[in-house]
């Protein structure tokens, strides 16, 4: 059975149609496997090779990948929710209730969207703490940290703009308070609030603006920066690996690593004098 399957698989990957789509060809050699990544438009931003130990759970806790996973869940469930949602007053609230009580699987999709949003914010923070405490933000990765901070802001803005869309009391007052906080910006504060809301009140204009930001502008910005973020991992030399010790022991844990860093810092300071 397995033999037959392998035979068909082999025949398929050697077919002219397959070869016209996947130029790297079949084969399991190191070169072929590298080419499969390198010659694929979606994968070529990723490194062609990864250290084996970087695939272990304790290397990264997969926090970045999990964040991407929640983002993809949010995109898919978000698109599905858009089929039933009108960003108009007061229809938006009725649509939200319909999704909850009338639409098949609407409750599941809405809850999945909401919980994934909460999870994504939490995972972004966890990812950033992890990167920070492992020192993975240091050169040559410092620009990718900046991209990460931009992605944090985009994530928070996505979360905030999505909050208004159910058009319930919680949404209305959260956006009232939030845009009033923006008003405290010196000089241009009231103008920022006016532009955000498209008026002076949290009203139909504000709902439409937040909808467009939430469903089009911010997701596009997120995708753009995610692509750069991933591409930079490859350009900056792959995932950050902690320095191995010469005798092949496990990488130093934080306290002793800290003492090494401190002694290096002291040595450098002395040298500069």
């Amino acid at each position: 059975m397995a033999g037959k399957f392998d035979l068909y698989l082999d025949r398929m990957t050697k077919s002219r149609l397959w070869r016209s789509i996947f130029r790297s060809g079949s084969g399991d050699s190191s070169l072929h496997r590298a080419q499969k990544i390198q010659q694929n438009v979606f994968l070529h931003i990723l490194p062609t090779k990864v250290r084996r130990r970087m695939l272990r759970l304790d290397a990264t806790w997969y926090l970045g990948t999990l964040t991407l996973g929640t983002f993809m869940v949010l995109v898919i469930t978000g698109i599905l929710l858009m089929f039933y949602y009108h960003p108009s007053v007061p229809q938006a609230y009725a649509d939200m209730k319909d999704l909850r009580y009338v639409v098949s699987a609407g409750l599941f999709l809405r809850n999945l969207h909401r919980w994934s949003a909460q999870a994504m914010v939490a995972l972004v923070f966890a990812h950033m703490f992890r990167v920070f405490y492992r020192g993975a933000y240091r050169p040559p990765r410092e620009f990718n940290w900046v991209i990460g901070v931009i992605l944090l802001l985009v994530t928070l803005l996505l979360s905030y703009t999505g909050y208004l869309l159910p058009w319930d009391q919680l949404a209305f007052w959260a956006i009232t308070v939030g845009t009033n906080i923006a008003k405290y910006v010196p000089l241009i504060g009231p103008r920022i609030r006016f532009l955000l809301l498209g008026g002076h009140l949290v009203n139909a204009n504000a709902l439409l603006r937040f909808y467009v930001l939430h469903c089009v502008v911010l997701p596009l910005a997120a995708v753009l920066f995610i692509v750069v973020h991933f591409w930079r991992i490859r350009k900056d030399g792959g995932l950050y690996a902690e320095q191995s010790q010469a005798d092949g022991r496990k990488p130093a844990d934080t306290p002793s690593l800290k003492s090494v860093e401190e002694s290096v810092a002291v040595a450098e300071a002395v040298e500069k004098r």
Binding site: G199, H200, L201, N203, A204, N205
Partner: peptide, 12 residues
Amino acid sequence: SYQYMSPNVLYE
């Protein structure tokens, strides 16, 4: 863009 995004008539 700034002018476009600032509504001139508000239905408030």
